[in-house]
Amino acid sequence: MEVYDGEFIAELETIARHIRLNSIKMIYKAGSGHPGGSLSCADILAALYFHIMKHDPKRPDWLDRDRFVLSKGHAAPALYAVLAEAGYFPIDELSSLRKMGSRLQGHPCMNKTPGVEMSTGSLGHGLAAGNGMALAAKLDRKLYRIYVLLGDGEMDVGETWEAAMLASHYKLDNVTAYIDRNKLQLDGPTEKIMSLEPLADKWKAFGWHVIEINGHNIQEIIHATNEAKGVKGRPTVVICHTIKGKGVSYMEGSLHFHGKAPNDQEYAQALKELGGAP
């Protein structure tokens, strides 16, 4: 297993911190949005866009690029933050989130935002869309890979499992799914609202290669993805154990900040904790 040097990992961690910081800024300025699930997936996005994926912000429609689908579309702020950080559009534009005329819609819109591969927001669609891209890649004998980020709440959706079955049936080893397993959904803990466990066993039973990691550990995210690339004949799912609201103390593990913007005081504290200026 490749060991990445501390400096490299630290750089990606800084990017993850920027994603968190900008997500909070955007949601505060918009007055609405979903901070909890944006913060929990920041490390996964940093690793994908700044190490794992083959992509070119100057050519968002480059045919051979890897594709990323944000199935949990409500984490749009985190996606926009990483796209801006990568150079798809100016960082300044982030403050237009959810405003009239903005390219940054409340949920991702592929026809408005450069770098967004699929319009999402209604839960449970992303994996199937990713499968379509993966089938197209195989048909065209292209080597690009498809990365799909799912929320654990999306495990409630029947279509997620239809897509899981299809990916396995068609042997889509070019698909890697990440589950942001932050264990909270809007109404409460996932195990209280709709039990998901044993989640890994379910995916195994559907024919997937399953890896479980700490979703806030960049090194583990990269290692899991490398392992997935080596798996032939079946798709891989990486169950990323995360903390909802990760990085802002009062948001961590809090249901309250699933879909609510921080107030002035909370905002000031979040900035302080994430090391940013307003």
Binding site: L63, M110, E117, M118, H125, G126, A128, A129, G130, N131, G132, M133, A134, L135, A136, A137, L139, D140, E159, A163, L166
Partner: peptide
């Protein structure tokens, strides 16, 4: 949705 993925890939 699978069809959407195909169409997003130029099919």
């Amino acid at each position: 949705d699978t069809a959407a993925g195909f169409a997003a890939s130029g099919k």
